[in-house]
Design a protein around this nucleic acid. Structure first.
Lengths: 139, 139
DNA sequence: ATAATTGCAAAGGATTTGCAATGCA
DNA sequence: TGCATTGCAAATCCTTTGCAATTAT
């Protein structure tokens, strides 16, 4: 492995740095608007557009993950490693679930996490058979 | 078990019936707009509002499931039973994965489904510990 | 008949974008 | 200095909603 300098066109602005720090400091899966509220005192002329642009860039860089929150606004998570979430259908909160991998598949009715599991949603992500076939993913 | 008549305030309009039929006839997890496009010839004065209202009602009735599609528009699935999905990061398509429950846990790199698995997203849904505690979910 | 449902159009809320000014590298 | 980034405001996109007319039960 040769070590070569990573050429990234991205810059490290104060705004971007603080957005990332903020997301790393919490496990509440904030919304873009929450991030904006937290930082607008620090940057009086901050705009929501800047928040969104940065969240998208940071996601592109793999620094954070976008969690689409059923039909309303998105949430962002600085914990990139795969881990299960729990969403409460009553209050809407989104929790991290930290359990060993072999215990990932909790059954409906399970309360071992303190939360009452009613249903499970699983989504794999990657490259589909069709795109693999014609190498379209190399575009 | 006494059998009593189910009192539902809902009506069975032609529009709702066709929306449901359409969703049952496909496994492409259509968007609201796709449904609208399919039906507007059949109902020349159909409106998107009607589609959305019906999708919400059908979801309420448990006839279909809303799948929030990372940051863009939602998709709907008439297969209500829990089953894993696969989302292609290249073409954006959403696939059903039909495998036995004990095989749910595919590892990154797995190609047993034909698709290349890169990551796994797991979300449980139910009532969180805090809501359970104060019975808030009974509201 | 009564109340759910429709079509229409306008409102809403989250996110994106064009552009001139700004500030990292 | 050059170009990514910012702030601002307007634009977009998906979804919801108010209202009067229609229709299922």
């Amino acid at each position: 492995m040769t070590d070569r300098k990573q050429e990234s066109p991205y810059r490290n602005t104060r705004q971007r740095k603080r957005i990332m720090e903020l997301l790393r400091s919490t496990d509440t899966h904030p919304t873009a608007n929450w991030v904006y509220d937290q930082l607008k005192n620090e940057f009086p002329s901050l705009s929501l557009g800047t928040i969104y642009r940065n969240l998208n860039i940071l996601q592109e860089q793999g620094m954070l993950v976008r969690i689409s929150s059923g039909s309303t606004f998105d949430r962002f998570d600085a914990v990139v490693e795969a881990h299960p979430h729990f969403r409460c259908r009553n209050c809407g909160k989104l929790y991290d679930i930290r359990i060993p991998e072999q215990d990932y598949y909790l059954q409906p009715g399970d309360r071992s996490t303190g939360h009452l599991v009613e249903s499970l949603f699983i989504e794999y992500r990657g490259i589909c058979a069709s795109c693999l076939e014609d190498g379209k993913h190399l575009d």
